[in-house]
């Protein structure tokens, strides 16, 4: 299937509609009902990171999520307008030691655990692109 793309500003007010769209995508690809919220959490976490670290929460800058449904998986690409590396942006591991009580920085950890396959890279234009693969049983 050719990818379908949604594009939206870096504004928290779009997060709930985006969450609903991601679950609709999952539903259309026969992701089990019980797994839909895990899927949407995994993607929304990456969308929030794109807004913050890639676009500096500037509502004039856009985040693009494209998805392709294959027989055994859904592939999501989350693009922003910046160039950032997750480890440098975060600067710490929120799941360890003194950082356990940090009030932020858990998004990538959660996304990687829920989706199992999350990879950071660049678009052909050199902007940050995160690829998330969600297997379909």
């Amino acid at each position: 299937m050719l990818p379908i793309e949604i594009r939206f500003p870096s504004d928290p007010s779009v997060l709930e509609p985006v969450q609903q769209i991601i679950e609709a995508v999952g539903r259309s690809a026969d992701v089990e009902e019980d797994e839909l919220s895990s899927l949407s959490v995994a993607v929304v976490e990456l969308v929030k990171n794109a807004m913050e670290h890639g676009n500096g929460n500037d509502p004039d800058k856009m985040v693009t999520v494209s998805f392709s449904i294959f027989p055994n998986r859904i592939r999501f690409l989350i693009d922003d307008e910046g160039t950032w590396e997750p480890e440098k942006a975060l600067g710490f591991n929120p799941g360890e030691g003194d950082e356990l009580l940090s009030t932020r920085g858990r998004g990538i950890l959660i996304s990687r655990n829920l989706a199992k396959w999350v990879e950071f890279g660049l678009t052909p234009e050199g902007k940050t692109r995160v690829t998330l693969i969600w297997p379909i049983a």
Partner: peptide
């Protein structure tokens, strides 16, 4: 019904 890292924070 739904929560992510923001809620944990």
């Amino acid at each position: 019904s739904w929560m992510d890292s923001s809620g944990l924070g």
